[in-house]
């Protein structure tokens, strides 16, 4: 990708992201009352994160087994409601451990 195209895509990304945050904050003064619209906005972040994470996470380290270990660690730590930081570190550590193990056994 050449720099010109990078800056074009970056500009689109920045302007869109900013306007999403700014337009409501600058102009909106009332509360949403429609239950269905409200529910849609409630669900959207989780729907986005879920569809982004799986199955992409299984391919994030380049091979399946370390990624699966990372996923398992993330699920266990999150289930126990550890902080974002702890879960992120635990995920990496599990993937790294399995990566090392594979390296030693091959």
């Amino acid at each position: 990708m050449d720099n010109g195209y990078f800056f074009l895509l970056l500009a689109v990304m920045v302007v869109t992201t900013y306007l999403i945050r700014a337009i409501p904050f600058v102009f909106f003064r009332k509360k949403i009352t429609n239950e269905k619209v409200k529910a849609f906005f409630d669900y959207i972040p989780y729907a986005v994160l879920s569809s982004m994470t799986f199955p992409a996470m299984l391919y994030a380290t380049g091979s399946i087994l370390p990624s699966a270990a990372g996923l398992a660690a993330a699920l266990i730590l999150s289930w126990r409601e550890k902080s974002l930081l702890v879960v992120a570190i635990g995920t990496c550590a599990a993937a790294f451990a399995v990566n090392l193990l594979l390296l030693m056994t091959v």
């Binding site: 972040p45 989780y46 994160l49 982004m52 994470t53 992409a56 996470m57 994030a60 380290t61 370390p66 990624s67 990372g70 996923l71 660690a73 993330a74 699920l75 730590l77 999150s78 550890k82 902080s83 974002l84 879960v87 992120a88 570190i89 635990g90 995920t91 990496c92 993937a95």
Partner: peptide, 10 residues
């Protein structure tokens, strides 16, 4: 893979 772990944690 860490950033995906954070998404799971959310």
């Amino acid at each position: 893979i860490g950033i995906y772990g954070m998404f799971v944690a959310i």
